[in-house]
Simulated scan of single mutants.
Amino acid sequence: MTSPHPETPPPDAGVLVIACGALAREIRSALDASGLGHVTLTCLPALLHNRPERIPDAVRAAIRENRGRFRKIAVAYADCGTGGALDTVCAEEGIERIEGPHCYAFFSGTAAFLARGDADMDAFYLTDFLARQFDTLVIEGLGLDRHPELRDMYFAHYRRLIYLAQTDDADLEARARAAAERLGLAFEMRRTGLGDLPAFLSRI
């Protein structure tokens, strides 16, 4: 159940979670581990990751499409670069969203992430999803496949690539290390697990 149009829910349908497609695997894992069978998951396209200005309207459309079909709707997006526009949508629609400025924060634990403050200002982050989709979302998404000379301009202010690992996966770690090398950044890995995500899903 990870399409923008979830299956027709049963009469006693519980909660719908509207999420970023980049988090589909992790959210499904958290739901399965927590036994939250009353939660239906629907995901918007992961490519919105590169067009955050489109996220608020896409979330609003999904909310309105599904309102009345579920007892409750929640949003598993952080602000994700919308500059507060997603919070405005959620407030207007009466919908709760997971706290945090971006998924890097809530995977790390938002309180711990914010406490690091300037210490991580030089870091470019990867999650499991971004490690898998590095070529598509970073190299091709930024046009570095066509103009590799832009790498040093885009990443001039970064010193490290921090891989926030949701799982213990040697292949993903290798991909993240290769991504750091490709970008000319030092590599660091932090095993975060799912951070604040399970608690948010359990609460709704």
Rank of each mutant, 00 (worst) to 15 (best):
A123Q: 13
R28Q: 13
G141Q: 12
R177I: 10
L137W: 05
G141R: 03
H49C: 13
L47W: 02
R132S: 13
G21V: 01
L44Y: 03
V75Q: 08
L197M: 11
L185M: 04
F106M: 07
E53A: 12
R182S: 11
I63G: 03
L31Q: 13
L114H: 14
I95Q: 11
C20V: 00
A78I: 00
E181V: 01
F134S: 07
A186Q: 10
L86G: 03
F200D: 14
E99Q: 11
M121W: 08
F187Y: 15
I55T: 13
E92G: 12
V89L: 11
F113D: 02
E92W: 00
A123D: 15
E26M: 00
G94V: 09
V17F: 07
R182P: 00
I27T: 09
G37K: 04
D122G: 06
R64C: 11
A24K: 15
E96M: 02
V138I: 12
M153A: 11
E92I: 02
I95K: 08
I204E: 14
M153R: 12
I162F: 06
G100C: 12
D152H: 10
R175W: 03
T40H: 09
R28I: 01
A176F: 08
E96L: 05
R69D: 05
L31R: 11
L150A: 07
A105M: 14
S3T: 12
R159E: 15
A156L: 09
S108I: 01
R151Y: 03
F107D: 04
R25G: 09
A61M: 05
D169Q: 06
G141L: 05
L126K: 12
R190Q: 12
R177K: 14
I27V: 12
E99R: 09
C90N: 09
E93R: 06
P101W: 03
R182A: 07
D79F: 01
Q133F: 04
L36M: 08
A19I: 02
A33C: 06
L130R: 14
A199G: 03
Y158I: 00
H49K: 10
P10F: 00
T88E: 13
L31I: 14
D79Q: 08
D168V: 13
A115M: 11
A30V: 10
E92T: 10
C80M: 07
H38Q: 14
T40M: 07
A85I: 06
I18C: 10
N50G: 15
I27W: 04
G84V: 05
A13F: 00
Y158R: 10
I63S: 09
V59D: 14
A22H: 06
L41D: 02
L183P: 08
P198W: 09
E7T: 10
R64W: 08
A13M: 01
A176Y: 09
D196Y: 11
H38R: 12
Y158C: 07
A156T: 08
A33V: 05
G84M: 02
D169L: 04
G21Y: 04
L86V: 11
E181G: 10
D122M: 04
A178W: 03
A91T: 14
L114I: 04
L185R: 04
E181W: 00
V138G: 03
L137S: 06
A105Y: 15
L41G: 01
L142R: 01
A62G: 12
D79E: 14
A112T: 12
R51C: 13
H157Y: 09
A61D: 10
F200E: 15
A178E: 13
E93T: 09
S3G: 02
V17E: 10
A156F: 03
P101A: 07
H147S: 11
